[in-house]
Design a protein around this nucleic acid. Structure first.
Length: 458
RNA sequence: GGCGUCGUACCCAAGUGGUCUAAGGGAGCAGUUUGCAAAACUGUCAUUCAUCGGUUCGAAUCCGAUCGACGCCUCCA
């Protein structure tokens, strides 16, 4: 099967060919651990999760590396503001990040290297760049990459140097640079950095932001890798600068396919910390949304489109997740142990293999759900077909991970349900309805089937 | 100033030259079922794809203009 991915570099879909047959190397830009990641950040991490799961589903071995940025302006500021050490801040938020990753059932990366463990690798790379004439040090002990020394600069973001606007931010930069757009590889120590510094051939300082990704991707995945991902905002400057650094330092091809996810927006605004309209995973869980609903909401639009995130969207996701889980439960009761797959599975995979078209794949899934429900209603579904359906849902779920697989019903609820059953048998409708209400108040829904009842969390 | 994206039903959202009188989900309405509900099922719900032109035998899909929303141009996923 041909797998196609949209490559930011070429601005078109390309047929995916791994460098090494049967194996895919992926580097994804991870969090900067200075605060809890929000749902917008997780849109990107979930897109990467789907990417990985699709590659695994079609039989590739996947080597995935995600960096943790644990030293930069934001982490240092945070530590200063809270009067804590850098390590205290970054270890706290790294732990929280990993917690959220687990909650959302995101497959963790094989390696999660942190920047501060790779200072030596970065220094070597910077030295190599200076030696080759792609970088220069300044009087204060900083090192900059000279963008004029790298002729392809701008090829990812499709920027040409002439068209660049002289923005205030660039103009206001306090460093002395040859070219205003030259970016820092090494930043000389400043007073506000406190005790955050490493020795280098250029004096005390710390690495520039982009350096860690170049150094760590090379260390863990080699000079040349298959796929590199991140949010669209990373295209420029981060990924553009990575390309310049890596290609210049290594004299090698760097990344074959660059994939970027669009932003999640709330009420037509980008979710951002400065606007104060962010939601974290624990907050959303506290609002009563399940991990499955969150996953569903995040994959219900294509990763390259802006995602309109709203309460309405979450409510819809919850119902959709329930619909699929409901069928799953029914199938469990009917199915024999068969292990064959319906044609819809191939279609499902094929659609996902076409640049991860999750909304379209969900369409296929729902069509199938309706077909099976119809057969169940008409008592036409054979045990064999049910087993097929069950196997399909399980296989699809290896990618989507939206099945809840039976929640445990608390003892109190189970007792109330039983009590209600007795009342119903005695045709005591008043008591039965009251009990249903009571169960609902405790957060569970009871539904009466033709034979018995069903109970699930609200 | 430069580069780029998007505008599909009440809402979300696929479709990127013919199978489109446009998938799927949610909401609504009507019905089957049910002690009543819920769930499920059935029917209904865009002859039309921001607007106006053009190319084509054929366009939501290509081109141009207009209107509207948005992103990037040094540290935000």
């Amino acid at each position: 099967m041909n797998i196609k991915f949209y490559n930011t570099l070429s601005r078109q879909k390309e047929i995916f060919k791994p460098i090494k047959s049967g194996e895919v190397s992926i580097y994804t830009c991870g969090p900067t651990v200075y605060s809890r990641s929000h749902i917008g950040n997780f849109r990107t991490f979930l897109f990467e999760d789907i990417l990985k799961r699709v590659l695994l589903a079609v039989g590739y071995r996947v080597k995935h590396v995600m960096n943790i940025t644990d030293v930069d302006d934001k982490t240092i500021n945070k530590a200063n503001n809270e009067n804590k050490t850098l390590a205290e801040i970054t270890s706290k938020y790294t732990a929280e990040f990993m917690e959220d990753v687990a909650t959302l059932k995101i497959l963790p990366a094989d390696e999660l290297p942190v920047a501060t463990d790779h200072i030596q690798e970065m220094i070597s790379m910077i030295s190599a760049l200076i030696k080759k004439g792609n970088a220069y040090s300044t009087d204060d002990g900083s090192v900059f990459f000279s963008i004029e020394s790298y002729k392809d600069y701008g090829k990812l973001a499709h920027l040409n140097l002439k068209g660049l606007k002289q923005t205030d931010r660039v103009a206001a930069d306090e460093y002395t640079k040859d070219h205003p757009q030259d970016f820092a590889l090494w930043k000389a120590w400043k007073e506000e950095d406190g005790d955050v510094s490493w020795n280098s051939p250029w004096g005390k300082g710390r690495p520039g932001w982009h350096m860690e990704c170049s150094a760590m991707s090379t260390k863990y995945l080699g000079n040349h890798l298959d796929i590199h991902c991140g949010g669209v905002d990373n295209i420029f400057p981060h990924h553009e600068n990575e390309i310049a650094q890596s290609c210049a330092a290594l004299d090698s091809e760097f990344v074959n396919i660059w994939m970027h996810s669009e932003h999640l927006i709330m009420t037509d605004e980008k979710m951002s910390k400065s606007l104060g309209n962010i939601k974290t995973i624990p907050e959303l869980l506290a609002d009563g949304h399940s991990a499955e609903s969150l996953r569903f909401a995040l994959i219900s639009s294509h990763y390259r489109s802006k995602l309109a995130f709203s309460n309405n969207k979450l409510d819809e996701a919850k119902k959709s997740v329930h619909r699929i889980n409901e069928l799953y439960q029914k199938l469990t009761e009917i199915a024999d142990s068969g292990k064959s797959l319906p044609d819809e599975y191939d279609l499902f995979i094929e659609i996902l293999a076409d640049d991860l078209n999750t909304p379209k794949a969900l369409g296929v899934l729902f069509n199938y759900v309706r077909d099976l429900n119809r057969k169940i209603d008409n008592v036409q579904l054979s045990k064999k077909e049910a087993a097929m359906g069950l196997f399909f849902l399980n296989k699809a779920d290896e990618i989507l991970s939206i099945l809840k697989k039976q929640d445990d019903i608390p003892e109190i609820i189970a007792q109330l349900v039983e009590k209600r059953e007795t009342a119903r048998k005695e045709k005591n409708w008043q008591l039965s309805d009251d009990l249903r209400e009571e169960i609902k108040e405790k957060g569970w829904i009871v539904e009466d089937l033709h034979d018995g009842t069903k109970c699930y969390p609200l």
